[in-house]
């Protein structure tokens, strides 16, 4: 199996006590290393749930999930935390940077939870990650001293600092203007070109055009899975 990600019959049902809400219905998906894949769908289509399961933030109700050869669908919360720490990187719509904390320290955050990395190594890795997003001149800036695009680039650096095998971006441009959106998507494309696997969750067609492959969800099922033909300029 050369796949980075294999999902087999993944079903997720939210139990709200009186009612059971199905969010994903027997989803099958395979993703290989180096892909840039956009997960599309209207709100309520199950794309966020899929993203949470792929991101090891949640367990599926049933089905099998292999990430990098590891069966993760039965892991407990501490084991999942360890996988997130070592193998995954997250970029969120609202950046989620720590206020009144420098860019460098924000990027260092994931490494705080990795005991194998000491403080000097941590600082060095964070600097490298910030260089990757062209922010090496903003190390000491706090979030309120940075523009929206810069903040999101700090967040991307934070997602990259642990050298993840997979980068998950949940509506990364949702809070940005169109010019900055292009800037951030370019950054993601560059990262993909240098070999990183990226999963992008979005509801905008414009954004999905930056990806190489598009998976469309509706009512918890994959309705379309195709390569992007008219891909936006790299």
């Amino acid at each position: 199996m050369g796949n980075l990600i294999t999902l087999r019959d993944i079903t997720k049902i939210y139990d709200l006590g009186s009612v059971k809400v199905p969010a994903l219905n027997e989803v099958n998906l395979e993703i290989s290393t180096g892909e840039f894949i956009a997960i599309m769908g209207a709100s309520g289509s199950g794309k966020s749930t899929l993203m949470n399961i792929i991101g090891c933030l949640d367990n599926p109700t049933s089905g099998e999930y292999y990430l990098d050869g590891i069966n993760v669908d039965k892991l407990n919360s501490d084991q999942l935390a360890n996988i997130r720490n070592k193998k995954l990187g997250f970029v969120f719509q609202s950046f989620n940077l720590l206020a009144r904390t420098s860019a460098l320290e924000n990027v260092e955050l994931p490494l705080f939870y990795n005991l194998e990395i000491n403080s000097s190594k941590r600082k060095q890795l964070a600097q490298v990650a910030l260089e990757m997003v062209n922010l090496s001149d903003r190390l000491d800036h706090q979030p309120n001293q940075l523009s929206g695009g810069q903040q999101q680039r700090v967040a991307i650096a934070r997602a990259l600092v642990n050298k993840p095998i997979l980068l998950l971006a949940d509506e990364p441009t949702g809070n940005l203007d169109s010019k900055t959106t292009v800037e951030i998507m370019k950054v993601l494309q560059e990262l993909n070109q240098s070999g990183r696997t990226i999963i992008l969750v979005t509801h905008e067609h414009d954004i999905s055009e930056y990806a190489k492959r598009v998976v469309e969800l509706k009512d918890g099922k994959i309705i379309k899975d195709h390569a992007m033909k008219n891909r936006r300029a790299d």
């Binding site: 501490d78 609202s94 994931p110 642990n162």
Partner: peptide, 16 residues
């Protein structure tokens, strides 16, 4: 709460 969520997302365990 969001900070806690973020810390968990980047690998903090419950005990942390």
């Amino acid at each position: 709460t969001r900070e806690i969520g973020l810390r968990m997302a980047v690998g903090a365990r419950k005990i942390d």
